[in-house]
Design a protein around this nucleic acid. Structure first.
Lengths: 380, 380
DNA sequence: TCAAATCGGTCAAAGGTCCC
DNA sequence: AGGGACCTTTGACCGATTTG
């Protein structure tokens, strides 16, 4: 059984010694017999279940040793922190963990008022899934046509190291997806056009940083750009101050996220919290502020209601502490991009200009963001 | 539950009509009530645990009698050798004993945990009170002597409108108080000197912004500087970009704080959360990171345990949302001060230079902050 | 249509905890 | 210094859903 094709995952299998007789595929985490591709990694049933339980529940594992425990079939239960780390390294994605299904014999949870925040969360998950699909096509379309007319691109490896040009490409792609994501949100649709544009402008950089960090949870020693390139800390040294941004993303976001067992639900909720910021823009009318406040409150509740059994670790608070880092790193990213733009190191199109480079704190608030408006108006 | 279905005979009917008498299965070793099939034998929890411990520790028991001791519920602890022999005879297999696993979360976690965060909160309130007293004297001493030798000062009104020079004075005063505040915290005292300096440097600007916002809760249309001057939005327009910082403090901090009923307890807790940031510096050793994490967790718990009856408004989350604004405004403040310094608009002494202007993100991380170190060493 | 692949859940039997 | 009552976690096994 288990005809493992390993198609989507282009990772090289380190089973060099298994060329003898039996063609059993081994678990990439513990080298037990694998039963298939689970959550993005070839793995056994044990590691599959372990990963699902770890993501679903709180599970703040802590390694009692040096973060490098041996993880094999006989020792995999000795250190859950290192086992989970290995799961991430092997390519398991928290985003692949679905929601709990309805079980006929089980009583449904009594939702007094949390139903609305739960519904909101569901809609966020749906929007995220749509954008994930969109990302595939955006990557392809922008790769050759829309953006970057200059350089020849090498895309032979599914995951290879990024160039400075890739950084620009990635930012551009993420901005495109970001606009579509926003447009898919009901609360966003209710806003006037200029408030929509202002909100996007104010939150674009933080949302990009947040997204990059989330995608990089399973990557070691680098960040995972939107265009499936890896920006390693070593490579990043070569291209200006970007390496500082990269290392900050890893130290201040990726590592804490891993410790907290950050999952897709956390991600979409925090994304909404970043986005629906009533104070970051000067709303045209009180209704706008009210919509934003309401949406943010729903997202807050949704995030808080994750892991209801969390009494000790104050997980919700720890998650909220990611926000200052997100904003601070975003600010630094903007400065770096501005610098790169100044020295003509990357291509900057109108969308990037309007959403990233136009500093909202400066006096040019009245400039109309034509490209953004255009994208907001277009159907898809 | 553990209804023993009897692995040997497959004729078991699921919970059928055997409810006439309680059909308890007995331990095959000691005839106590069995809890299931353990290690290959129907057995009780006692024999299960005994067998595991015996195999794990490689105990060599010796029977002092004739290898045929009675092993039942009351006598099973009389002879370990015979009990272990009976375990083997009943079918227990040493091979079923696995390796030791990772630790499980403590069962009792309610004790003293909430008390600690309460104690921590109390110590924070005490430190704050001390600093409030210190502020009085600092304002007086810096007013005429320590800082600002150039300009003539007007201090006829207890609260009057501030000049740009007052901004500099206020920042300087708050830095002095900040250092003393930090020194009064036990967790801070446990840190190495260079980590102390790094932490102060990284958090000085956000803490100042946070403090200014808190003091301005009762002021309308302006912010209340440390030196009892009011910086109004109208006045601030005159002196560069400071007006933007002032209006952001009001819009993004003061107004939300008012809506939330921000009080002194919230203030000291959030201040500690801002301060004990394990990711903002690169700690010299793991202990430092651990101290910071621990302190921040205590502060988080303290803040969360405010208003325990808050279910609807998610107050804790709303309070945490102040943090991104604090950091963002702080970053802008630093830029403005840097600009003012460049154009010689305000006086900058060593302390201010080291704590505010030296951008931690730049490469000059190795510069030793002499003035800070000096202040850290001095008794008061 | 249907079978492979992969998602979800279940629960006996491993584990560990901690009062006695 | 274990014993053992009580709790948590593991993973083999199964059904449900999706996909080509």
């Amino acid at each position: 059984m288990a005809l493992l094709n390993g198609g989507a995952n282009g990772m090289n299998t380190p089973t060099s010694s298994s060329d003898s007789v039996e063609q059993v595929t081994l678990c990439h985490i513990c080298s037990d017999r694998a039963t298939g591709n689970h959550y993005g990694a070839i793995s056994c049933d044990g590691c599959k279940g372990f990963f699902r339980r770890s993501i679903r529940k709180e599970h703040n594992y802590k390694c009692r040793f040096n973060q490098n425990c041996n993880v094999d079939k006989t020792h995999r239960n000795a250190c859950r922190a290192c086992r989970l780390r290995r799961c991430m390294q092997a390519g398991m994605k928290a985003g692949a963990i679905q929601n709990e299904r309805d079980v006929i014999g089980k009583r449904r949870k009594i939702e007094s008022e949390g139903e609305t925040s739960g519904q909101f969360l569901q809609s966020l998950l749906v929007s995220e899934k749509l954008c994930l699909q969109l990302r595939e096509s955006v990557i392809k379309s922008t790769e050759q046509v829309v953006y970057d007319t200059g350089k020849i691109k090498y895309n032979t490896h599914p995951a290879h190291f990024a160039t400075l040009n890739d950084v620009g490409t990635s930012i551009h792609q993420q901005l495109c997806i970001l606009v579509e994501w926003a447009k898919s949100l009901i609360q966003f649709q209710e806003l006037p056009l200029n408030d929509q544009a202002a909100l996007l402008k104010a939150c674009a950089a933080p949302l990009i940083v947040h997204g990059v960090a989330y995608r990089s949870l399973s990557t070691d020693g680098g960040v995972y750009l939107a265009n499936e390139k890896i920006l390693s800390t070593e490579e990043a040294t070569l291209i200006g101050d970007i390496n500082l941004v990269v290392s900050r993303i890893i130290n201040e976001l990726v590592i804490p996220m891993r410790e907290l067992g950050y999952d897709s639900t956390d991600y979409v909720a925090l994304k909404a919290i970043i986005f629906f910021n009533p104070y970051i823009i000067r709303p045209t009318n009180p209704t706008v502020a009210s919509i934003l406040k309401n949406a943010r409150l729903l997202a807050l509740k949704a995030l808080k209601n994750q892991r209801p059994d969390d009494l000790d670790e104050c997980r919700f608070g720890q998650l909220m502490l990611l926000l200052p880092a997100v904003h601070s790193i975003a600010q630094q990213l903007v400065e770096d991009v501005q610098l790169c733009h100044l020295f003509q190191l990357i291509n900057v199109d109108d969308l990037m200009q309007e959403l990233i480079l136009n500093d909202g704190s400066k006096a040019n608030k009245d400039t109309v963001p034509h490209a953004v408006i255009e994208k907001l108006k277009s159907p898809v």
